[in-house]
Amino acid sequence: MAAATDDAGDSNEMIRVVSSDGEHFEMPEAAANLSLVLRHMIEDDCADAAGIPLAVVAAKPLAKIVDYCTKHAAKSSGLTIEEAEELKRFDAEFIEVDTDMLYDLLVAADFMGVEGLSKLAVQRTADLIKGKTPEQNRETFGIVNDFTPEEEEEICKENEWAFQITKPPSRLC
């Protein structure tokens, strides 16, 4: 914990950000630095009292992202095993969101350049997609099936050949 306090102590300054719908948020500079976009703004001295405007990030996902960054910044270095575990648990809970929020997080993390969160959201989405039939995926993600029945049949045919088990490398020893 000592290391974490030190980290936070290095950058006492709070960074203000403004969501697309005008809400203001604050986070420690160390947290803001996790976002590539915010870090560049800070480095360029664009972080003033009015706050950095984030034109495409709404308040709801921004609140989550501030949460995420604050948590991760506080535990960025010198983690003990328990702390790493705790961070993992935090991530797991953090990403338990509905698909709307997941979408917002994907887009916002991508836009703001928060690498860890991007990865987390990408993995979560992949996990959601994985186990579902195409129809279930359409339902889950609000997608309209725009194939004609003929096209669909064609793809099904192609997929017949999907029966495949990955081949191990063919070298002998």
Binding site: V122, Q123, A126, I129, K130, T133, P134, N137, R138, I143, V144, N145, D146, F147, E152, I155, C156, E158, N159, A162, Q164, T166
Partner: peptide, 15 residues
């Protein structure tokens, strides 16, 4: 992040 075998099925979702 999705295995190729499963990815293939996703081609059916939409264009």
């Amino acid at each position: 992040r999705i295995a190729p075998s499963k990815r293939r099925r996703l081609r059916l979702v939409c264009r």
